[in-house]
Design a protein around this nucleic acid. Sequence first.
DNA 1: TTTGCTGCAAATCCTTTGCAGAGGT
DNA 2: ACCTCTGCAAAGGATTTGCAGCAAA
Lengths: 127, 127
Amino acid sequence: MTHQRQVILEELRQVHTHPSADEVYDMVRKRIPRISLGTVYRNLEILSETGAIQKLESCGSPKRFDGNPDDHYHIRCIACDRLVDAPADIHLDVERELSETTRFKVVGYKLEFLGFCPQCLEISNPA
Amino acid sequence: MTHQRQVILEELRQVHTHPSADEVYDMVRKRIPRISLGTVYRNLEILSETGAIQKLESCGSPKRFDGNPDDHYHIRCIACDRLVDAPADIHLDVERELSETTRFKVVGYKLEFLGFCPQCLEISNPA
DNA sequence: TTTGCTGCAAATCCTTTGCAGAGGT
DNA sequence: ACCTCTGCAAAGGATTTGCAGCAAA
C-alpha cells in the first residue's frame, strides 16, 4: 500500500459522488500535486481488484468508482449522468431464472436504474 | 434509407451474434467493399435512434448492436465477452422499489446477466 | 538487490467529426 | 439546385502501456 494508493483510497472513501478516474485525479492532486493520471488508473484498478472499492463500468461515459465496497445499486440520471446510490431490496434468483433458457453458467448480473435526478427535474419543471 | 443503411440493417437482422460496430463493418464490407467505418457508425446510430435496432452499451468493451429491436435481456460471458440473448421473465416495478429511497424520477433500468458461456466452460472443464 | 511502484509520455482502442464530393428528388 | 449522405482522414476522449528511475523490503 503505497502513499499514492492510500490517498486515492482515502479520497474515494470520503465522497459519495462516484467520481470518474479523472475526477479522482483532480481530488488526489490537491494532496499529491505530482501524481500522474496513469498512477491513478493503475491504483483504481488494483483497489477494485482487491475489493477495496468498486469499479462501475455501467456504460458509455467514463467509468465511475465507488469508495463503498459493499454491494448496492445505483441510479443514473439520463440528463446529466449523475450517479447516486439507490437502496433497493432486489435479489434476483438468476440461477433459477436463466438456467433453463441458456446453456451459460450464470454467476450474477449487473443492474442499474435510470431516471432523472432532482436537479434535472427542477430545470425541466420549474416550481 | 440509403443502400448502405439498408445493407447494414439486413446484415444485422440476419445474425444473432450482437456484433460490435467493427464486426458490422466487416460483414457489410463483403457487400459494399468501399463503405467506410464512419458510415457504419453513423448508420448504426441512426438505426438505433429510430428503434430499428438496439444499441447495447452494457460496458467496457465496444458497444454491441442487436438486430432484434424487441425488448429482451442478454447474458455476457465473463471469459470471452460473448453476448447472447437471455429470455427471462423479469419485470421490476422500479417506481415502487425506488421512489421512496431516492428523489429521482425513475424511468427504467438496465439489466445484464453475467456468466460463463458453454464454450468457455468446456475449456476450463474438459469433459 | 530485488521487486514493485512511480511519473512521464507515447500508444492504443473505440468512436466521432470536418470536409468535399456524389446521389437522389 | 438542394439536401442528405457518403468516403476519407484526422481528431477526440478514455484508458493502457513502455520505460527508466525511485523506494522500500
